[in-house]
Structure formats: structure tokens, C-alpha cells
Design a protein around this nucleic acid. Structure first.
Lengths: 152, 152
DNA sequence: AAGTCGCTTGACGTAAACGTCAAGCTTAAG
DNA sequence: CTTAAGCTTGACGTTTACGTCAAGCGACTT
């Protein structure tokens, strides 16, 4: 099989593709999350970097800090000797999953709240100062209180 | 019915209950997200503030900025006159729901990635440098590539 | 040769979300 | 009366994640 050299990307290409700035890519490199090759002084990104960037951005979207993301990425570079670090990482991963599952619940709550907000708004837009609008508003507040376990 | 005066909270009480600092509560007030009463100069938080704080923290956990949260909270104080703002808010809410649903997917992805990471780690911990460990590592990388639609 | 593009490395700036004092008021306890 | 606890308002500091120049290099075009 031929060693068909992998497709590579210039910094601006990769940036455009992922909707980030070149500055951000350099920043990630600075922080040790990306390690592109060099052609002279220009950075050359491979598929590997593209994969990593994808993971970085996904991590960011779920609220991980760059440092946390780096910890995760670094993990796969750990040698067989560092069992201690692996144990530590394992605990962190499990804790992170618990946190993410809580976050998932938060998101579902938020979506519900927003949908209630939409109902509230649409009610008021349909019939200004109408009983329905007021009712929707009261329902929303009541619901919020119920979730906090408060009296009406 | 008696006007049984609602239970109130001192700043440190509310802070402790929600696991935030008093400074944070003052900060939220500064930004217009909370409006506690005053007893002399001391802040007095009511159930209303407690509800709002709950929404604030939940919003934060799903990645909303304080400004965005404020926009949402303010909405329920809009008069019947401001139909334009309500229309704007309605669009924002709907867009936000779409974003949150994307975020939910990200979280599910992240959880999966972490579980793969855990499998990877546990494999290596169980049998250092074993074929299984290597296999898990390769599987993980391959999976990441597959998601990006790349060739192996 | 001169200009333009895209890239580079600093270096300084910035917004968000608080943390961390400092200095002073107030209220209950000793 | 003074001490302590808990509150207040500034005001400055900090971290994260970049944005925004400035100045210069290298390749290509005109």
C-alpha cells in the first residue's frame, strides 16, 4: 500500500472549517492542546490535529476548561508506567460523567423553562393583558416555586 | 386569610444554601439579576429572590452568561406595551432551545467519549501494555476519526 | 523591484465572573 | 463600654480565553 500522504491544512483553513479564529488555534497550541507540524515556520495541521480540535470544541461546548480538556487529551499519551496517573484520571473521568449527567438534567430543565417562557410570551402576544397571559405568567412562577419546594 | 409574612434570608444564609459566596450574590444584584429588600442597610432575600437565584445558577450551569440570564428574567417584567421586545425575546428563546438541544447532543457525545476513555484506562490498568489496552486505544482513536468522517 | 498575501512571534488589551482586601456601621453578648 | 459577628460599600486583583495590533519574514505576482 502506498503511503499516500495525509491531507493537511493551513491554519486559516482549519480555523474557517471549525468556525474559530487562527488566534484561537495558536492559543490552543500554546496551552499544549494542539501540536501541528511546521513547514518552515508555518503551521501544518494534520488529521490528528483536526480530530483533537473537534474534541476541544466539543469539550468547550459542554463547559470544560481548556486545562480539563488537555488533561483528557494527554491521557492517551500516558506511558504504561504511570499507573498512578491513570488511576487519578479514571476517578476524574467518572466524576465528570456524573457531572455531565447532572448537566444534562439542567439542560432539560432549561429547555422546559424556555418552552414555558415561549408559551407565556405567545399567550401575551395573542391577547395582550388577557387572562390567559396572566394565567401563563402565574403558572410559570408557580412551577418555578414548586421546583424549589416552596409554598404557593 | 392572614398575610403570614414570608420567610426571608440573610445573604450568608442564601449563599450557604446554594453553595455560592455572598460576593456572588452582591455581584448578581449589581448586574440587576437580583433585587433583595433592605432592612436598614442589610439585604433581605425573599422567596422570589430564591427562585431567581435558582434560575440564575441553573442558567449558568448550562452555559448562559449572566447577561443572557438577565434578559430572560427581565422578560417576565415586560409590560403589555412592549410587543416588539416580546417578539425579539420569542425569537431568542426559540434559538436558545435549538442551541440547548445541540448542547444536549454534545453532552451525550462527551459522556460516551469519557466512557470510552474509562474503558481504555481500565483495559490498560488491567493488563499493562496488553493487546486489549492497545486495542482499546486504537478503537477510541478510530471512533473519533469516524465521527469526523475521516479515512482510517 | 515593489507590492500583496498569508503566515509568524510578541505584547498589550479586554470581557466575564467573581476573589480579596480595607474600612466602617450595627447589633447582640459579656 | 468594648468586643465580636455579620453586614455594608468601594476598590483593586485574578483567571480564562481569547482579541487586537505591531513588526517582520517568505512566496508569488506584476
Amino acid at each position: 500500500m502506498p503511503v499516500r500522504s495525509e491531507r493537511t491544512y493551513a491554519i486559516s483553513e482549519l480555523a474557517r472549517e471549525f468556525g474559530v479564529t487562527a488566534r484561537a488555534l495558536r492559543f490552543y497550541e500554546d496551552k499544549g492542546l494542539l501540536t501541528p507540524l511546521r513547514d518552515g515556520q508555518a503551521r501544518v495541521y494534520r488529521g490528528r490535529d483536526r480530530v483533537r480540535l473537534q474534541l476541544i470544541l466539543r469539550g468547550k461546548r459542554v463547559g470544560l476548561s481548556l486545562q480539563e480538556i488537555k488533561d483528557i487529551l494527554d491521557l492517551y499519551d500516558l506511558g504504561d508506567g504511570q499507573r498512578a496517573q491513570m488511576q487519578v484520571a479514571l476517578k476524574k473521568f467518572k466524576a465528570r460523567i456524573v457531572a455531565l449527567e447532572a448537566q444534562k438534567r439542567d439542560i432539560l430543565h432549561a429547555i422546559e423553562s424556555l418552552k414555558e417562557g415561549i408559551a407565556f410570551l405567545e399567550g401575551r402576544l395573542a391577547a395582550p393583558a388577557s387572562p390567559e397571559g396572566v394565567a401563563a405568567a402565574r403558572a410559570f412562577e408557580k412551577e418555578a416555586r414548586r421546583r424549589l419546594g416552596e409554598g404557593g
